[in-house]
C-alpha cells in the first residue's frame, strides 16, 4: 500500500514537471480570420518539424487579436489591417511594443460568367451592386439580364476583406446569395450567366472571368505592388521583435522560407517572396 502511494506521488510529480516544461513550449496565436488559414497551415508544418511545441491558433477577428496582444494573452496577433492608433497607444501604455511582420498580400478578385461582356467595374459600381442599388447588367453596359450577386458567408475572412474594400460597413442587400466556400462560389459563377462574386486571387482561372477594378487587372503582380485597389498586407504582430531563435521568431519569419511561400500561395494569397 505504502509502495503504491509512493509510485503515485512519483507519477504525479513527473506529470506535473512535464506540464511545466511543456508550458514553455506553447505558442498562443490569436486574431484575424483572414490570416487564420495561413497560421493554421504554418502550425501544421511546425508540428512536423517541432512535434513537442504546442501552437494554438484562435480565429476571432483582428480587433480581438490586437486586444489579446495588449493584454499579453497571446504571443502573436494576426491582423488583416494595421493597428489603430488607440490600440497602439493602449499597448504602449501597458509596456507592450507592437512590431508588425507583413507576411503576405491579400487580393480579392471579382469574377463573372465567361459569357458576360462587362470587363471592368469601379469600386463604386461594386458597392451599388452589393447594396442592391443596381440590379441589372444593362445599367453597367452589359446585356439585359438580372444580376445574381453572390457573397461568401459572413464568417469568412474573404467576406471580411470584401466588406473592408467595397461595402465600407454598408449593409448588403437582402437579395444577395451566400455560399460557404471559395470553390463553391467559383462553381456557382461558372454555371450562372448573370452571376457576380468575389474570391481570393488563388481561385481566378480560365473557367470564370476576372474583372478589372478601377481599371486594374487583378494579378499577383498588381496585388503584390498595391496598384490593384483591393489588395492589402496581412500582418503578424509581436511584442517587440521576437528574440532570435525562439519559436515566436521562427513562426514570424517562416513566410520567408520556400515552404512558407508554398503555403501562402496554396491558401490563395500572394507571397512577398519569389522562389
Amino acid at each position: 500500500m505504502k509502495k503504491n502511494l509512493f509510485t503515485m506521488v512519483l507519477v504525479l510529480t513527473a506529470v506535473w514537471v512535464c506540464n511545466l516544461s511543456a508550458a514553455e513550449k506553447t505558442l498562443q496565436i490569436e486574431g484575424s480570420t483572414t490570416v487564420g488559414p495561413i497560421a493554421d497551415a504554418f502550425t501544421e508544418a511546425f508540428s512536423q518539424a517541432y512535434p513537442d511545441v504546442k501552437i494554438t491558433v484562435t480565429k476571432n477577428g483582428s480587433g480581438n487579436g490586437a486586444a489579446a496582444l495588449v493584454d499579453s494573452r497571446c504571443d502573436i496577433a494576426m491582423m488583416s489591417r494595421f493597428m489603430k492608433l488607440d490600440e497602439f497607444t493602449a499597448a504602449v501604455d501597458k509596456g507592450i511594443m507592437p512590431v508588425a511582420h507583413a507576411i503576405a498580400m491579400d487580393g480579392i478578385c471579382i469574377i463573372v460568367h465567361p459569357s458576360n461582356p462587362v470587363t471592368e467595374l469601379s469600386l463604386a459600381q461594386l458597392h451599388d451592386i452589393f447594396t442592391g442599388a443596381v440590379k441589372n447588367w444593362k445599367e453597367l453596359g452589359g446585356p439585359d439580364m438580372p444580376i445574381v450577386a453572390i457573397s461568401r458567408d459572413t464568417s469568412s475572412g474573404t467576406y471580411e476583406s470584401f466588406d473592408h474594400f467595397v461595402m465600407r460597413k454598408d449593409k448588403m442587400d437582402a437579395s444577395i446569395e451566400y455560399v460557404s466556400s471559395n470553390p463553391q462560389l467559383h462553381s456557382r459563377v461558372k454555371t450562372t450567366a448573370g452571376a457576380i462574386g468575389y474570391v481570393g486571387v488563388g481561385f481566378l482561372d480560365a473557367e470564370v472571368k476576372g474583372l478589372k477594378v478601377n481599371n486594374v487587372m487583378p494579378s499577383k503582380q498588381t496585388i503584390a505592388n498595391g496598384t490593384y485597389p483591393m489588395s492589402r498586407p496581412l500582418f503578424l504582430f509581436t511584442n517587440g521583435y521576437p528574440v532570435l531563435g525562439t519559436m515566436s521568431h521562427k513562426f514570424c519569419v517562416f513566410y520567408l522560407s520556400e515552404k512558407g511561400q508554398e503555403i501562402i500561395e496554396a491558401k490563395g494569397f500572394v507571397p512577398v517572396t519569389k522562389y
Binding site: M145, V148, E177, R188, T191, A193
Partner: peptide, 12 residues
C-alpha cells in the same frame, strides 16, 4: 442548379 437555369431560364 445549372439544370434549373438552363431549362427554365431562371436567373439563379
Amino acid at each position: 442548379a445549372p439544370f434549373l437555369q438552363a431549362e427554365f431560364g431562371l436567373s439563379t
